[in-house]
Amino acid sequence: MTRKSLLGGGAIGALAIAIASVVSADIGDDEQLVVNGEIEMIIETAAPDHLEGHLSTIYSGWVFRSDETQAMQADDFDNPAFIFVDQAVDAFNTEMGAEGNSCASCHSAGDFADTRPTYPQWDAEHGEVQTVEMQVIECQTERMGMEEPYAYDSQAMRNMVALIASEGRGQVMNVAIDGPAQSTWEQGREIYYTRFGQLELSCANCHEQNYGNNIRADHLSQGQINGFPTYRLKQANLVSVHNRFRGCIRDTRAETFSVGSPEFVALELYVASRANGLTVEGPAVRN
């Protein structure tokens, strides 16, 4: 596979208002992603209304990866993330907590088709936006009587979130941005467009203005999270959304927010909404 020359490319930090004219050989390659021969993924679609003036088309991160990496996601056996999903299935069926229940006592895995596509979402009972991880912790502490629920970014939690995401594959992302979640969403949007760190980069500088370009040897995607938790070849393990946010902000040489922090919850809600219209791919395979 050869990397054809990349066109366009504003300098990092350029505040281009125009829709990114950066073109990469990958976009428009006419490739399709069908997982296991049956789950048809939407990898390119019109951007949601709230992105008007910023992006006209949204692309899954899958589009930006090499042919070999793309091929690894096409099948649940070749996709190494499923080792971890299998581990989560075992955990799902294991009793934990004072109540003596397992997840399976109340849920079947099939219940989660709508979870990844609609989370983060407003939880009326707790008066806040919740991510999937927060929901798992809530179940474990409030309903299962676990004294030590899974830590937010632990292996066990990532495995479980991957299992939950996998059940939603092929469903269209549809995260609510209005109603009680609106102020959190707006907070997330502000963070997205804020420059951080010594390098003074915002999420938008790379992922909105320069997707398709390379930053050093990395081929930038639009930074969508419909494929999370994702199996990264680099870590040879699942990587969660907040972990990736931390990595990105750290890459700007800033002190980052913590996983599970309200800032990252807000950012996750906003970033998830930028993918409204794409299908859930998690757990995906990325570089």
């Binding site: 596979m1 050869t2 990397r3 990866r65 090499s66 042919d67 070999e68 990496t69 190494p80 990264r232 070849l233 680099k234 040879a236 570089n287």
Partner: peptide, 9 residues
């Protein structure tokens, strides 16, 4: 691959 996306895998 001519270009490996990541040397780990």
């Amino acid at each position: 691959p001519e270009i490996a996306e990541n040397g780990n895998t």
